[in-house]
Design a protein around this nucleic acid. Structure first.
Lengths: 190, 190
DNA sequence: GTCTATAGTGCGATAGAC
DNA sequence: GTCTATCGCACTATAGAC
């Protein structure tokens, strides 16, 4: 286990607290108390409260972008790409449930450039997802239903998986992947 | 169009503001300004800020409970019950997207009795949902996959539908129901 | 790198006049 | 039913000592 520097340590504790209570409900005093220091001391490591939010959310958003880019460019069927995307979401959600919660709940408290960057990344991600579905329909691999409904249904399940995985005692990752692929993809396969 | 009394009017405006910014990010001064009165005047109509939250969230939670109870006791197949539940979610989500957002994002800011009541209702709802799925599996109507994965996948889609319906220019409700039933149920039917 | 002290702001809520 | 005025408190953030 690597020793964290002070800033990483602060971000880690902040992630846990904000996941539990929400961004606006966690004060710098709360955060400092959890680290056993005074609030003022935090400002030696971070510029302000916003920096905590944007660092955590953009880091996870960029991890999804990297994963998506790779999968999008694979030379394989759309169904295989969707299967890989399910795996990507499961892997990231399991290891970063705090950051997933913040991305889900608190992105709207981002400001200025960080907000724009986040929304841009998220839109690009959704567009790639939609393109994969449409290609699958055109290739006859995926049933010819409204692609928006398919995209929405899959994404909403994948995006809230972190909630559910936490709640019910962490099942085996490989079983989770198998069952999730089956439930999400069997219904749209031709 | 019925004329709203002052309290209903306050709750309606609060719903919109809180949906946009989150419960903690909307102050009583913000709310008052949106109504063109002073913050102090709000307290002639509501006891405190918490009352806004609990009134809106519990009202919608109870609407789901009523709908579920009725569907749960229908004498029909599990697949038909699920189909009716999808319709219930669509009908409520479309007419109450603000309240849906608050129930989704801000329930954790409920306090004491109201929090307990909400969690109780939500658990009962999920248990009924799970029971319907399990009965369907036992009757051979639904594929024999992990029922938790099926429940989670369907519920996460239904619970976040309000987000997506708002975002993309409100498609025809009947088409939405047909396609949603097909995408969510074709994959789990035997 | 952490501390004390504090500036400056905004919050929820109340009292009491009209 | 709305107002002005205000209380008491919590917040983010900074200055400067150690």
């Amino acid at each position: 286990m690597k020793v964290l520097n002070r800033k990483s340590e602060i971000l880690k504790v902040a992630k846990d607290l904000i996941t539990e209570k929400g961004y606006n409900a966690v004060s710098m005093r709360d955060l400092a108390k959890a680290l056993d220091i005074k609030a003022a001391s935090l400002y030696n490591h971070i510029a302000n409260k916003q920096e905590i939010l944007s660092t955590i959310i953009l880091e996870i958003a960029e991890a999804f972008t990297v994963g998506m880019t790779q999968i999008f460019n694979e030379e394989t069927t759309s169904i295989n790409k969707l299967q890989d995307l399910i795996g990507l979401h499961i892997d990231i959600s399991i290891n970063n449930s705090g950051a997933m919660a913040m991305m889900h709940n608190d992105w709207k408290h981002l400001e200025a450039d960080e907000l724009i960057r986040f929304v841009t990344l998220r839109n690009a991600y959704e567009n790639n997802f939609r393109t994969i579905i449409k290609q699958g329909i055109n290739q006859g691999e995926i049933i010819n239903k409204n692609p928006e409904v398919i995209v929405f249904s899959m994404l909403s399940t994948l995006q809230t998986m972190y909630l559910w995985y936490e709640k019910r005692g962490k099942m085996d990752v490989n079983i989770l992947k198998t069952d999730m692929v089956s439930v999400l993809l069997d219904g749209i396969r031709t």
